[in-house]
Design a binder for these strands. Structure first.
Lengths: 168, 168
DNA sequence: CAAGATTGACTTATCAATCTTT
DNA sequence: AAAGATTGATAAGTCAATCTTG
């Protein structure tokens, strides 16, 4: 399949040859389609290997990488751009399944924090392994180290831009 | 913010300096986070400028780029990896709003096709302009032509890989 | 009273079951 | 009967309103 063209200006091409000078015009539609397809893969895989949505899974991943497997709810929400409501609903489900626990933060604050349970750690590991095996590894292998490195850099820059657009 | 590390192997770094040889290890978490943040932006923008979900919007975009603004339902589903059900539900909403019409395909087949209405075209254009102005342009400007070109290529390759994983 | 979080109503997405046309 | 699409039940995400603690 060739990428469809969401976002490109409607214009005719004189030839079918790839026009190097206009490649940047394809950047956006390609990027949008790539993100869509990859996200779709990630969602299916998280559902299949862990019976969790990818949105829930990202919360688990954040916790699994945190000190004491614990982070504040507002912090989780800010990092992932989730609404407080979304975090709350998601944690309710995850807590019911015994994957996380919620408790008040120490220090007499009015905030709460979530902690990954042992079960949560196991599930997160299982889903991560499937993700690496079925999605990440084949993809990065296909790209090769050089392109993977470029992608890492570009992604980091995009993340920075989007972060600044939020806070700045 | 720095990218969190979903999918990276848990290992300690000896130093805080950026280790060039290990940049590819960051490719995956960066990519996952970038996709998440960008998708989030796209969803909010489509909702804001068109009162449609990004999932619905992509259907509109496919139609807007098609001959006679028309495509078969199965074709739409295949391209976007939507289930038949999802396409049907989405078109029901879009049709109710007067943005698309559904009719049987010519040629005595049992298939159906969807066509963008004039209103649908207007809305799609409006959302696309907002998307370009608020998301695409700032982002690609920040990246510069060279990186945008690389991103386009890499995205195209990823799309191909994911397409082959499906059909092959 | 305001920061921080939850609740409830509504929309979107998914999965299984069903209907329709050839 | 099988391709192509719809329907209906459930789960996830969003927005506005509300509860709670310092």
């Amino acid at each position: 399949m060739t990428a469809p063209d969401p976002g490109a200006s409607p214009r005719e091409h004189g030839t079918r040859e790839q026009d190097v000078a206009t490649i940047p015009d394809a950047a956006w539609p390609n990027l949008v389609m790539m993100m869509h397809l990859l996200q779709t893969s990630l969602e299916r895989q998280a559902q299949r290997d862990g019976d969790v949505s990818h949105g829930q899974f990202m919360l688990l991943v954040l916790l699994s990488g945190a000190k004491d497997q614990t982070r504040g709810l507002t912090d989780l929400a800010d990092t992932l751009r989730y609404s407080p409501s979304r975090v709350s609903h998601a944690l309710t489900v995850l807590e019911r399944r015994g994957l996380v626990t919620r408790r008040r933060t120490a220090g007499g604050r009015r905030a709460w924090e979530a902690t990954l349970t042992r079960e949560g750690r196991l599930l997160t590991g299982r889903v991560l392994r499937g993700q690496r095996r079925d999605i990440r590894d084949p993809l990065l292998a296909e790209l090769g180290d050089a392109d993977a490195a470029t992608l890492a850099e570009v992604s980091a820059r995009v993340i920075t831009v989007l972060d600044e657009a939020r806070s700045g």
